[in-house]
Amino acid sequence: MNSLNINSIIRFVVLVLAQALIFNHINFMDSVNPYPYILFILLFPVNNNRTLFIFLSFMLGLFVDLFSDSGGVHAAACVTIAFARPPILKFAFGMVYEHQNIKFNNTEFGNRVIYFLILIILHHLIIFSLEVFNISNILLVLKKTLFSSVFTLILCILISVLFSNRQR
């Protein structure tokens, strides 16, 4: 339990710094940036205190906001996906989640991609609609969401595969 907490704290700090110093400055094709810091929310242990989880997600978003000067955009998106996570877990993993013994390293690859994809699209949609904040620019929002989501999804899968400590 203790090592789990330390693990989470390290993950929190590393992901925020990586987002602020590296991923915010990728600017692929002039305007596409990935947001893989939400891996913290995606991979947070399931059988934990939900209130604490939502609060941590808020802090995560707020720190990213601090670094990228975006008001409360990331905080709002992070809180929302943290709140919406349980039903999406249930949808993506089915029975395994019901028994509360889910380990992300041992789940099926396809299920994990679906789970990542839904949360990433939700997160990005909220970010960009709040950031642009203009209903007449809805096309711009959708375009940004699409491109960034693909980018984030690829990075999230790569990172989670590279750093998973699966026992063979």
């Binding site: 939900r50 209130t51 939502i54 609060f55 808020f58 978003g61 707020l62 906001d65 601090l66 000067d69 975006s70 008001g71 409360g72 955009v73 905080a75 709002a76 809180v79 929302t80 943290a82 709140f83 709040l130 904040f133």
Partner: peptide, 29 residues
């Protein structure tokens, strides 16, 4: 849980709206 979510969500929306008006985004920068 839901109440905390709503509270935090409105805090962040308030911060966002505040940052949209010129010269008011004092806290998160």
């Amino acid at each position: 849980t839901s109440l905390l979510f709503l509270l935090l969500f409105f805090v962040s929306i308030a911060l966002t709206i505040q940052s949209h008006s010129y010269h008011k985004s004092k806290f998160i920068n």
